[in-house]
Amino acid sequence: ESETFDVELTKNVQGLGITIAGYIGDKKLEPSGIFVKSITKSSAVEHDGRIQIGDQIIAVDGTNLQGFTNQQAVEVLRHTGQTVLLTLMRRG
């Protein structure tokens, strides 16, 4: 069981404050995608409180990250504006 949710964030001096990890899993058993690996102290993400380590980032400002490499996803996140809309999925 999984839930998908949107989080809109405004960057602070730390930026968004997440590091991400790309993961290619076994299609049947484990998900592939871009996941939140860590959250920086005092960052926008930590202050917001809704995003957790292990959440999958589905889209950034409407750009679907399906099939993106870790590096491609980093580039998408790097080129966002001051306000960012993240679409995430959390597995229950």
Rank of each mutant, 00 (worst) to 15 (best):
residue 1 E to W: 08
residue 1 E to G: 10
residue 2 S to I: 15
residue 2 S to L: 12
residue 2 S to D: 10
residue 2 S to M: 15
residue 2 S to H: 08
residue 2 S to T: 12
residue 2 S to Q: 10
residue 3 E to C: 14
residue 3 E to V: 13
residue 3 E to D: 12
residue 3 E to T: 15
residue 4 T to M: 10
residue 4 T to R: 07
residue 4 T to Q: 07
residue 4 T to D: 05
residue 4 T to K: 10
residue 4 T to V: 11
residue 5 F to N: 03
residue 5 F to Y: 10
residue 5 F to L: 05
residue 5 F to A: 05
residue 5 F to E: 03
residue 5 F to T: 00
residue 6 D to E: 15
residue 6 D to N: 15
residue 7 V to D: 00
residue 7 V to R: 01
residue 8 E to T: 15
residue 8 E to Y: 12
residue 8 E to V: 12
residue 8 E to N: 09
residue 8 E to M: 13
residue 8 E to C: 12
residue 9 L to W: 05
residue 9 L to I: 15
residue 9 L to K: 01
residue 9 L to D: 00
residue 10 T to D: 07
residue 10 T to N: 11
residue 10 T to E: 07
residue 10 T to C: 11
residue 10 T to K: 14
residue 10 T to F: 07
residue 10 T to V: 10
residue 10 T to G: 04
residue 11 K to R: 11
residue 11 K to V: 05
residue 11 K to A: 08
residue 11 K to N: 10
residue 12 N to L: 04
residue 12 N to F: 05
residue 12 N to D: 13
residue 12 N to M: 06
residue 12 N to Q: 09
residue 12 N to H: 10
residue 12 N to T: 14
residue 12 N to E: 10
residue 12 N to S: 15
residue 13 V to W: 11
residue 13 V to H: 15
residue 13 V to E: 15
residue 13 V to A: 15
residue 13 V to K: 15
residue 13 V to F: 11
residue 14 Q to V: 14
residue 14 Q to A: 12
residue 14 Q to R: 13
residue 14 Q to L: 10
residue 14 Q to E: 10
residue 14 Q to I: 09
residue 15 G to Y: 03
residue 15 G to W: 04
residue 15 G to S: 08
residue 15 G to N: 07
residue 15 G to A: 07
residue 16 L to C: 03
residue 16 L to E: 04
residue 16 L to F: 07
residue 17 G to K: 00
residue 17 G to M: 03
residue 17 G to N: 04
residue 17 G to I: 00
residue 17 G to L: 00
residue 18 I to N: 00
residue 18 I to V: 09
residue 19 T to W: 03
residue 19 T to V: 09
residue 19 T to Y: 03
residue 19 T to S: 10
residue 19 T to D: 12
residue 19 T to L: 05
residue 20 I to C: 09
residue 20 I to E: 04
residue 20 I to K: 01
residue 20 I to S: 04
residue 20 I to Q: 01
residue 20 I to G: 03
residue 20 I to P: 04
residue 21 A to W: 08
residue 21 A to P: 03
residue 21 A to R: 13
residue 21 A to D: 15
residue 22 G to M: 10
residue 23 Y to I: 11
residue 23 Y to P: 09
residue 23 Y to R: 14
residue 23 Y to C: 12
residue 23 Y to L: 11
residue 23 Y to H: 13
residue 24 I to P: 12
residue 24 I to K: 14
residue 24 I to F: 12
residue 24 I to Q: 14
residue 24 I to L: 13
residue 24 I to A: 14
residue 24 I to S: 15
residue 24 I to Y: 12
residue 25 G to L: 06
residue 25 G to D: 13
residue 25 G to E: 12
residue 25 G to P: 10
residue 25 G to F: 06
residue 25 G to H: 14
residue 25 G to V: 09
residue 26 D to A: 11
residue 26 D to L: 08
residue 26 D to H: 13
residue 26 D to V: 09
residue 27 K to C: 14
residue 27 K to L: 09
residue 27 K to E: 12
residue 27 K to A: 11
residue 27 K to V: 09
residue 27 K to H: 12
residue 28 K to T: 13
residue 28 K to Q: 13
residue 29 L to W: 13
residue 29 L to D: 12
residue 29 L to E: 13
residue 29 L to Y: 13
residue 29 L to P: 15
residue 29 L to R: 14
residue 30 E to T: 15
residue 32 S to P: 10
residue 32 S to G: 13
residue 33 G to R: 12
residue 33 G to S: 05
residue 33 G to A: 07
residue 34 I to L: 12
residue 34 I to A: 04
residue 34 I to E: 01
residue 34 I to G: 00
residue 34 I to K: 03
residue 34 I to F: 13
residue 34 I to T: 05
residue 35 F to I: 13
residue 35 F to W: 06
residue 35 F to T: 07
residue 36 V to N: 08
residue 36 V to D: 01
residue 36 V to Q: 03
residue 37 K to S: 09
residue 37 K to P: 02
residue 37 K to T: 08
residue 37 K to L: 03
residue 38 S to P: 00
residue 39 I to V: 08
residue 39 I to Y: 05
residue 39 I to K: 05
residue 39 I to G: 04
residue 40 T to W: 07
residue 40 T to R: 14
residue 40 T to C: 10
residue 40 T to K: 15
residue 41 K to T: 09
residue 41 K to H: 09
residue 41 K to A: 12
residue 42 S to T: 09
residue 42 S to V: 06
residue 42 S to D: 14
residue 42 S to I: 04
residue 43 S to D: 05
residue 44 A to L: 08
residue 44 A to D: 10
residue 45 V to A: 15
residue 45 V to H: 06
residue 45 V to I: 08
residue 45 V to G: 08
residue 45 V to C: 14
residue 45 V to D: 07
residue 45 V to T: 10
residue 45 V to F: 08
residue 46 E to W: 11
residue 46 E to N: 08
residue 47 H to D: 15
residue 47 H to Y: 13
residue 47 H to F: 10
residue 48 D to K: 08
residue 48 D to H: 07
residue 48 D to P: 04
residue 48 D to Q: 07
residue 48 D to E: 08
residue 49 G to L: 03
residue 49 G to N: 07
residue 49 G to S: 06
residue 50 R to C: 06
residue 50 R to Y: 02
residue 50 R to A: 06
residue 50 R to T: 07
residue 51 I to G: 04
residue 51 I to S: 02
residue 51 I to W: 01
residue 51 I to A: 01
residue 51 I to R: 02
residue 51 I to E: 02
residue 51 I to Q: 01
residue 51 I to D: 00
residue 51 I to L: 06
residue 52 Q to S: 08
residue 52 Q to P: 01
residue 52 Q to C: 08
residue 52 Q to R: 13
residue 53 I to R: 07
residue 53 I to Y: 01
residue 53 I to F: 02
residue 53 I to S: 06
residue 53 I to D: 04
residue 54 G to K: 03
residue 54 G to W: 03
residue 54 G to T: 02
residue 54 G to I: 00
residue 55 D to K: 00
residue 55 D to N: 00
residue 55 D to R: 00
residue 55 D to M: 01
residue 55 D to G: 02
residue 56 Q to I: 06
residue 56 Q to E: 10
residue 56 Q to Y: 03
residue 56 Q to K: 08
residue 56 Q to H: 05
residue 56 Q to G: 02
residue 56 Q to M: 04
residue 56 Q to R: 10
residue 56 Q to D: 03
residue 56 Q to W: 05
residue 56 Q to F: 06
residue 57 I to H: 01
residue 57 I to Y: 02
residue 57 I to W: 02
residue 57 I to D: 03
residue 57 I to T: 01
residue 57 I to L: 10
residue 58 I to M: 10
residue 58 I to V: 13
residue 58 I to E: 02
residue 59 A to P: 01
residue 59 A to F: 02
residue 59 A to Q: 06
residue 59 A to K: 09
residue 60 V to F: 03
residue 60 V to G: 00
residue 60 V to Q: 06
residue 60 V to L: 02
residue 61 D to M: 00
residue 62 G to S: 05
residue 62 G to R: 09
residue 62 G to T: 03
residue 62 G to I: 00
residue 62 G to W: 02
residue 63 T to E: 12
residue 63 T to G: 03
residue 63 T to A: 09
residue 63 T to F: 09
residue 64 N to A: 11
residue 64 N to W: 06
residue 64 N to L: 10
residue 64 N to V: 09
residue 64 N to M: 11
residue 64 N to Q: 10
residue 64 N to F: 08
residue 65 L to D: 00
residue 65 L to G: 00
residue 65 L to A: 00
residue 65 L to V: 13
residue 65 L to I: 14
residue 65 L to R: 00
residue 66 Q to E: 14
residue 66 Q to L: 11
residue 66 Q to R: 10
residue 66 Q to I: 09
residue 66 Q to F: 09
residue 66 Q to V: 09
residue 67 G to D: 07
residue 67 G to W: 07
residue 67 G to V: 04
residue 67 G to Q: 07
residue 67 G to M: 05
residue 67 G to F: 05
residue 67 G to I: 02
residue 67 G to C: 06
residue 67 G to L: 05
residue 67 G to K: 08
residue 68 F to E: 05
residue 68 F to N: 06
residue 68 F to W: 06
residue 68 F to P: 05
residue 68 F to T: 07
residue 68 F to A: 09
residue 68 F to K: 10
residue 69 T to N: 08
residue 69 T to K: 04
residue 69 T to F: 04
residue 69 T to R: 04
residue 70 N to I: 15
residue 70 N to K: 15
residue 70 N to A: 14
residue 71 Q to R: 12
residue 71 Q to W: 06
residue 71 Q to C: 08
residue 71 Q to K: 13
residue 72 Q to E: 13
residue 72 Q to D: 09
residue 72 Q to S: 06
residue 73 A to R: 04
residue 73 A to V: 09
residue 73 A to E: 01
residue 73 A to F: 07
residue 74 V to Y: 11
residue 74 V to H: 13
residue 74 V to E: 15
residue 74 V to Q: 14
residue 74 V to A: 14
residue 74 V to K: 15
residue 74 V to S: 13
residue 75 E to M: 04
residue 75 E to I: 01
residue 75 E to S: 08
residue 76 V to R: 13
residue 76 V to H: 09
residue 76 V to Q: 09
residue 76 V to M: 15
residue 76 V to F: 12
residue 76 V to W: 05
residue 77 L to D: 04
residue 77 L to N: 02
residue 77 L to E: 00
residue 77 L to K: 01
residue 78 R to M: 12
residue 78 R to S: 10
residue 78 R to I: 07
residue 78 R to G: 11
residue 78 R to W: 06
residue 79 H to C: 13
residue 79 H to G: 15
residue 79 H to S: 15
residue 79 H to P: 00
residue 79 H to M: 12
residue 80 T to W: 02
residue 80 T to M: 02
residue 80 T to D: 02
residue 80 T to E: 01
residue 81 G to F: 01
residue 81 G to D: 07
residue 81 G to M: 02
residue 81 G to T: 05
residue 81 G to P: 05
residue 81 G to E: 07
residue 82 Q to V: 07
residue 82 Q to G: 11
residue 82 Q to T: 10
residue 82 Q to R: 12
residue 82 Q to I: 06
residue 82 Q to L: 05
residue 83 T to C: 06
residue 83 T to A: 04
residue 83 T to G: 03
residue 83 T to R: 13
residue 83 T to H: 12
residue 83 T to K: 15
residue 83 T to S: 11
residue 83 T to Q: 09
residue 84 V to S: 04
residue 84 V to K: 01
residue 84 V to A: 06
residue 84 V to G: 03
residue 84 V to F: 06
residue 84 V to P: 02
residue 85 L to T: 13
residue 85 L to S: 14
residue 86 L to D: 00
residue 86 L to R: 00
residue 86 L to K: 02
residue 86 L to M: 09
residue 86 L to E: 01
residue 86 L to A: 00
residue 87 T to Y: 00
residue 87 T to K: 14
residue 87 T to M: 01
residue 87 T to C: 02
residue 87 T to I: 01
residue 87 T to L: 02
residue 88 L to D: 01
residue 88 L to T: 02
residue 89 M to W: 08
residue 89 M to Y: 13
residue 89 M to C: 10
residue 89 M to D: 05
residue 89 M to R: 14
residue 89 M to F: 11
residue 90 R to T: 02
residue 90 R to H: 05
residue 90 R to D: 00
residue 90 R to L: 00
residue 91 R to H: 13
residue 91 R to F: 07
residue 92 G to E: 15
residue 92 G to P: 14
residue 92 G to A: 14
